[in-house]
Amino acid sequence: MSSCNFTHATFVLNGFPGLEEVHFWIGFPLLSMYAMAVFGNCIVVFIIRMERSLHAPMYLFLCMLAAIDLALSTSTMPKILALFWFDSREITFDACIAQMFFIHALSAIESTILLAMAFDRYIAICHPLRHAAVLNNTVTAQICVVAVVRGSLFFIPLPLLIKRLAFCNSNVLSHSYCVHQDVMNLAQTDIRPNVVYGLTVILLIMGVDVLFISLSYFLIIRAVLQLPSKSDRAKAFGNCVSHISVVLAFYVPLIGLSVVHRYGNSLHPIVRVLMGDVYLLLPPVINPIIYGAKTKQIRTRVLAMFKISCGKDIQAV
């Protein structure tokens, strides 16, 4: 370790070990999921921007969530597709660090937005008369700015902590993209500062967010159960189903990937890669579907767009 005084110029990304012969064909499902993520989130952003009735805090947060999912998937999928289709496995050291920063920062921003959406549901259900005063569009915009600043500032030190490490043995990563835990585990120098800071940031952002989201829903459930009408209780719970589904789609793969990194050394490498891809692709793909199915205004506008498009095609024929 004392003789390890240099750093590799590149890292090598990993596809599905043992399935290299079918990497080309695996790229097509990944491309389909990426196309669904881009199309679905662009539709959500467009509809919320154009539909004035959706200029409310919950939908503005949803618009922000869709923009984050677009950025997150676009920062990684082109390189992943190049890996599977063209065997372009190498990524430069600086590009890897930049990708790592964007993945972690955008994930932290998304976590903050999910917390803001939980707070919106809490105010709307537990204090409906104060909702317009507490969460107006100005406050909503300020929350979005705070989310971006919070996610960026907390993860700016990660690239600096990685740059101080020396990588002189293996430079092969266990995922198709760069994340902090994966990169630091290749270092031959002391990684304790990286471990301590990474764990601290996860607890201060994701841990705190999960705690307050859980508290919000505890208070919501308590308030809903006190409603006298069964239909009112069902309506109140229905307003929360979409957000709960999105929260689970984000945090379950995130927690699973963290557990695999820390305790899953005995797992097959394919499991690591698969869980990493699920964490990266699942939320951007299913979030527009969840909110599109549960939000009448978005669903109606999408159907209207397709009817107009089909009508034009029929007239052209």
Results as ranks from 00 to 15, higher is better:
104 H>V: 11
37 A>R: 10
220 I>W: 00
112 T>C: 13
22 V>C: 02
155 F>W: 14
89 R>E: 14
170 S>W: 08
28 F>A: 10
198 G>M: 07
231 S>L: 10
317 V>T: 03
214 S>P: 01
12 V>Y: 08
35 A>Q: 10
253 P>A: 04
173 L>Q: 10
19 L>P: 04
250 F>Y: 02
317 V>M: 13
126 C>R: 07
210 V>N: 14
95 A>K: 12
32 S>E: 11
78 P>G: 09
268 H>K: 02
258 S>M: 10
148 V>F: 15
233 R>M: 02
290 I>K: 04
39 F>R: 12
310 C>R: 14
313 D>F: 01
73 S>M: 09
8 H>R: 09
221 I>S: 04
315 Q>G: 01
2 S>K: 11
163 K>H: 14
245 S>R: 05
60 L>Q: 05
36 M>V: 10
98 A>T: 14
120 D>H: 02
248 L>Y: 00
281 L>D: 06
211 L>S: 15
150 R>G: 15
242 S>E: 05
99 Q>A: 05
8 H>C: 12
64 M>N: 13
140 T>V: 01
166 A>P: 00
186 L>M: 09
143 I>T: 14
117 M>A: 13
309 S>T: 10
209 D>H: 15
67 A>E: 10
91 I>G: 08
190 D>R: 03
270 I>C: 07
130 R>P: 00
170 S>D: 14
130 R>S: 08
293 A>S: 11
174 S>N: 13
142 Q>H: 12
207 G>H: 06
4 C>H: 01
195 V>P: 00
33 M>D: 05
241 V>K: 02
279 Y>A: 15
317 V>Y: 14
264 G>V: 01
17 P>H: 11
168 C>S: 07
210 V>K: 12
30 L>A: 03
265 N>I: 02
284 P>F: 00
9 A>Q: 15
183 V>G: 10
155 F>S: 06
251 Y>P: 01
43 I>R: 13
13 L>T: 02
86 F>Y: 07
137 N>A: 01
168 C>T: 03
309 S>N: 12
130 R>K: 09
203 L>G: 07
81 L>S: 01
188 Q>K: 10
224 V>I: 14
256 G>A: 11
108 A>L: 02
98 A>K: 08
197 Y>T: 07
112 T>W: 07
254 L>R: 09
282 L>A: 06
60 L>G: 00
115 L>G: 03
186 L>Q: 07
196 V>Y: 03
172 V>G: 01
197 Y>Q: 05
288 P>R: 09
205 I>C: 08
47 I>E: 05
197 Y>M: 04
278 V>M: 11
124 A>K: 06
62 L>D: 01
132 A>P: 01
